[in-house]
């Protein structure tokens, strides 16, 4: 999964904050600073599971606070 995939999924799942440029260098921005709350991340995690077959455990979702952390988690998991 690439950053572009993540951007696309996040916009589909939770829209985008009008004060944030998602097209910029956002890898290490906090999701909260990007305007995304826990609901947005839960919806995103569910979509990632459907699309990429990677399940992010409930407890883990809250700990993945940046796009980089989320992408690293997804790429580090072996898809069954």
């Amino acid at each position: 999964m690439t950053l572009d995939d993540l951007r696309r999924i996040m916009v589909a799942c939770a829209g985008e904050d009008e004060h944030v440029d998602l097209g910029g260098d956002i890898l290490d921005e906090l999701f909260t600073d990007l305007g995304y709350d826990s609901l947005a991340l839960m919806e995103t995690a569910a979509r990632i599971e459907t699309e990429f077959g990677v399940r992010i455990p409930d407890e883990q979702v809250a700990e993945l606070t940046t796009p980089r952390a989320l992408l690293d988690f997804v790429s580090g998991v072996t898809v069954p």
Binding site: A12, A14, G15, E16, D17
Partner: peptide, 8 residues
């Protein structure tokens, strides 16, 4: 409607 509110 703000983009953030559209999906919800």
């Amino acid at each position: 409607i703000p983009s953030r509110l559209m999906p919800q």
